[in-house]
Nucleic acid binder design. Structure first.
Lengths: 195, 195
DNA sequence: GTCTATATAATGATAGAC
DNA sequence: GTCTATCATTATATAGAC
C-alpha cells in the first residue's frame, strides 16, 4: 500500500518503468551494434550504456540475437530518395552517402550491415533481408531489363562506399566538400538507374 | 619438392618438422581467417585444421594477431590485371571478380578484408594497408585528375561486389554466366579508369 | 521490476613433461 | 619439436533475493 502516491521526487535513475527501460536498451543496442558489429558488441556494454541491468536484456528480449533483430528492424533510409524519382537519383544518393554525419545518434542500416554481415550468427539473416527487402524493392523501383542485377550493383556501390568511408576511414572518402568524389559516385549509380 | 629424406618411414602425422608445421599453420590460418574473420576465428580451430597442436601457434607466431598478419602478407591479385593496361581493364576486373571460384584453397585478400575490417584488433591495420598500398598504387596506375578518388571508387565497387556476392550470397551476383552483370560492373569500373 | 551472484562455456596464452 | 594440462579472462544466460 501507498506505493504510487509517494510525495518524494523520483530517484535519480529510472526505476519501475519497464517501457522506458526497454526503450533505453533498444536505443543503446542500436548504437553499440552499429559501432562494433554483432559479435564484438557485448550485452554488458549495452546494458551499461542504457543505464539498465544486464539481466533485463534477456528478460525483455530473450537473447542477444533477438535484441539485435529488434534493434535493426524496419529501417529504410533509401525510401525518401526513391520517392523523388529517377531523374538525378544518382546525385541525390551520392550526396546523401557522402554527407552523412558519423556521430549522430541515429541508426544507420548500411553501417549495421557492413559491421555484422560477417557474423555467423546474424549474417545469414542480414543477407536474407538485403535480398528480399532492399534489393528486391530497389529492383521493382528500377524496372526495365536486368532490374535485379542493376539493383544489386547499386547496393554494392553503396555498401562498398560506406565500408571504405566510415569503417576503413579511407582518406579520399572523407575530405570535406569533395565534389569530384560525389560526381564519380553519382555517375556510376545513375548509369545503373538509366539502364 | 619433397621433405628431406629420412631412413625410416614418416609417422602418421607430421613430427619433428618445424618448417612443415609452420607452413601448415599458416595455410590453415589463411583459410579460417578468410572464412570467419579475425574475431570469430579461433586458434584451436586453426590448429586442428593444420593438424598441429594449439601451443605451436604461439610458439611460432607469438600471438593470434601476429599470425593474422603473417597469413595475409604480400597478397595482391590485382597486379596481373593492371599489367595489361587501361584498355578493357573494367571488363577484365569484372570477369575476374564474377568468376572467382568460392571454394579454391587460395587466399583471397578481398574476402579477408571484408570479413575482418570491422575488428577492433586488426581493422585499423587493414585500413592502413588498403590506403597506403592498394588505393595508392591504383591511383598511381590511373594517373590524371582526382586519381585517388577514382581509385577509391574502384576499390569500393570491388569490395562491395565481393561482399554481396561471396559473403551475403546475393542471388543476382551468383547466377552462372551472368553476362549482363559483368557488363554493368565493367562499365562502372572503366568509367573511373577513363576519368 | 530490478538487482546481485553465479552457472556454464569458450577464449588466447603459457608452463612444463616427454 | 610437440604435447597435455591449466591459467586467467571474458562471454551469454539465468536463479533467486529484495
Amino acid at each position: 500500500m501507498t506505493k504510487k502516491e509517494t510525495p518524494k521526487p523520483p530517484p535519480p535513475s529510472r526505476t519501475r518503468d519497464s517501457d522506458a527501460t526497454r526503450q533505453a536498451i533498444l536505443q543503446a543496442a542500436q548504437q553499440v551494434f552499429m559501432a562494433k558489429g554483432f559479435d564484438a558488441a557485448g550485452v554488458r556494454e549495452i546494458a551499461t550504456q542504457a543505464g539498465a541491468n544486464v539481466a533485463l536484456i534477456n528478460r525483455y528480449f530473450g537473447s542477444k540475437e533477438q535484441l539485435f533483430f529488434a534493434a535493426i528492424s524496419d529501417q529504410d533510409h533509401l525510401a525518401p530518395l526513391l520517392a523523388e524519382g529517377k531523374d538525378g537519383f544518382g546525385l541525390r544518393l551520392a550526396s546523401y552517402m557522402a554527407n552523412k554525419h558519423l556521430s549522430d545518434g541515429d541508426l544507420d542500416p548500411t553501417q549495421v550491415f557492413v559491421r555484422s554481415i560477417g557474423s555467423v550468427t546474424v549474417g545469414p539473416a542480414l543477407s536474407e533481408a538485403t535480398q528480399t527487402q532492399h534489393i528486391a524493392s530497389l529492383a521493382d523501383w528500377l524496372g526495365g531489363e536486368n532490374a535485379e542485377e542493376r539493383a544489386a550493383m547499386i547496393m554494392a556501390e553503396l555498401l562498398g562506399f560506406d565500408m571504405l568511408r566510415r569503417i576503413a576511414g579511407i582518406d579520399a572518402f572523407n575530405r570535406p566538400d569533395n565534389q569530384a568524389l560525389i560526381t564519380y559516385f553519382a555517375r556510376a549509380v545513375q548509369s545503373h538507374v538509366d539502364g
